[in-house]
Design a protein around this nucleic acid. Sequence first.
DNA 1: ACCCAGGGTAACT
DNA 2: AGTTACCATGGG
Length: 266
Amino acid sequence: MDFHLKVQGLNLERTLFCGQAFRWKKVSDCEFFGMADSKSVLVRENSDGISFLNISENDFIFWKEYFDLDTDYVKIVEQFSSDAILKKACEFSHGIRILKQEPFETLISFIISQNNNIPRITGIIERLCESFGERLNTGYAFPTAEALAKLTQEELSPIRAGFRARYIIDAAQKVKNGTVDLNALYNMTAEDAKTELLKIKGVGDKVADCILLFSYRKTTQVPHDVWIKRVMTEFYPNGLPECVGEYSGIAQQFLFDYIRHNWKKE
DNA sequence: ACCCAGGGTAACT
DNA sequence: AGTTACCATGGG
């Protein structure tokens, strides 16, 4: 069955390729195929919204949640636009939304992201899924914590994650044995949730903020990667403007996308 | 050959 | 508490 949703201010290409998710492929002008957790979907962008093609009603609920379609981004962008630089970033990166991704997948993905670049992160995650994820008829599921927890660094070497291999294993083991309860973080404050995530080797301040923002919708969190550090020193030496309110993490995503496409081009 | 990438850890002052 | 070398890999 196909499902259609009216959405204002959504650009799928910007949303799916702005460095928050790594398992999407552009298949035509307005169509994107993606995997998340153990589900897959073909999404089509229309003039007034998006369509999810050939999925069940249960999966539709999942994808509706994934795209966080109940949040009004038009209103948020309007709020951001009282700051001139942020306004420019929102115009350039029009249509970005923060997704609500599955926590374990986000945890492993952003462990892999450290000191790495987006194309290579994408490749490592693809090999991780093909090697250790369940085979589905449309692709491969993201590997479970159980599947990854029993691996050795040597068994992980084909995915070429480099020094991050031992971090992946540590994360999977701590999720599997309950040292970190990912489901419990939804109802915790950002600070408390971060304390839990920092128990995992290879998860530092920045990676923790990515997980909190991209999985748990803790929109106050601002991941300080090399690009955002450039933004801060260049444009906001005294911090982000007040108009970001409780959405500094969302503002961060517009600024990240904007600076990455415009650095040293003006 | 050198520098960089959605950084973190461990070993130093 | 704050700095710094080192960590694998691949593209420019």
